[in-house]
Amino acid sequence: MGEEDPGFAGGSYVVVQKYLHDLDAWEALPVEAQERVVGRRKLSDVELADDVKPPDSHVALTTVTDADGAEREILRDNMPFGAVGTEEFGTYFIGYARTPEVTETMLARMFLGTDAATHDRIPGLLHRGHGLLFFTPAADFLEDSTRPARLAGQPEPEPEPELVNGRRNSVTPVRAPPVFKARHRASRPVATSGNQWHKEFT
């Protein structure tokens, strides 16, 4: 977050998602087919060349560019998980961005496709997925006890009185409770291949 919202400068939008994979369907694919689904070589993790990478690969559909052709990036991480007892296997995804627009565009391209591809092939290999969108303020926002009151248009709390002989010489004023900026975005189901229902984050 920058000058477009100076009261919350330094903060970030955070998308957290949990996907459950159909590992039987994935393992049934030959390695070459898996690489075309993702858009990367399986062992080296090297991205496929543009003339080889299918337009419906995950890499192709999640590459977002602006009007000038510059790629719009987010800070992201993806971690696999598994629970043998419940037979749940999949990935946790977390992405940080200045605006949720980039991540939402990626999700829209994955589930709804583009002119060049109907949709990402990975959703067809999922049991289900869900996620949440948060706004996280910067550390200095949380440390500044007067900022929430200022943003809410409330008077700033009185400064703490000095200690006299180890004791306060007046009653400590009650601080206004913090006011945090909350954003909520709904999700709706989107039909994909295999009669499976998934979530599109809008």
Rank of each mutant, 00 (worst) to 15 (best):
G2F: 06
G2D: 08
G2W: 06
E3G: 11
D5L: 14
G7E: 03
G7I: 03
F8A: 04
F8Y: 15
G10W: 08
S12Q: 12
Y13Q: 03
V14P: 04
V15I: 08
K18Q: 10
Y19P: 00
H21K: 11
L23R: 12
D24I: 06
E27K: 14
E27Y: 14
L29P: 03
L29Y: 04
L29H: 07
A33M: 07
Q34I: 01
E35G: 05
G39L: 02
K42R: 12
L43S: 13
S44M: 00
V46E: 15
L48G: 01
A49F: 05
D50S: 14
K53T: 01
P54F: 06
P55F: 07
P55M: 07
P55K: 09
S57E: 02
H58I: 03
H58M: 05
V59D: 05
A60M: 06
T62Q: 10
T62N: 15
T63C: 07
D66G: 14
D66S: 12
D68A: 15
D68R: 13
A70D: 12
A70C: 04
R72V: 08
E73I: 09
I74T: 15
L75A: 14
R76G: 14
R76Q: 10
N78V: 14
M79G: 04
M79N: 05
F81W: 15
G82Y: 08
V84K: 13
E87A: 15
E88G: 12
E88I: 01
G90Q: 03
Y92R: 09
Y92F: 15
F93Q: 02
I94P: 01
G95V: 02
G95A: 15
Y96I: 02
T99W: 00
P100M: 03
V102F: 07
T103A: 14
T105Q: 14
M106W: 06
L107T: 02
A108S: 12
A108F: 04
R109L: 00
M110V: 04
G113Q: 05
T114F: 10
T118G: 09
P123D: 06
P123C: 08
P123Y: 03
P123W: 00
L126T: 01
H130Q: 06
G131R: 09
L132Q: 11
L133P: 01
F134E: 01
F134L: 13
A139D: 10
A139P: 02
D140V: 08
E143T: 07
D144Y: 10
S145P: 02
S145L: 13
T146S: 14
T146H: 11
A149T: 07
L151Q: 04
A152E: 05
Q154N: 11
P157L: 07
E158N: 11
P159F: 05
E160Y: 10
P161V: 06
E162W: 05
L163I: 01
V164E: 13
N165K: 13
G166Y: 08
G166P: 10
G166D: 06
R168N: 03
N169H: 15
N169V: 03
P173A: 13
V174R: 14
V174L: 12
R175Q: 09
R175L: 09
P177M: 05
P177F: 05
P178A: 13
R183Y: 07
A186G: 07
A186V: 08
S187H: 09
G194M: 05
G194S: 06
N195V: 00
Q196H: 13
W197M: 11
W197S: 15
H198Y: 03
H198M: 11
H198G: 05
H198C: 01
K199P: 00
F201N: 03
F201V: 06
T202W: 05
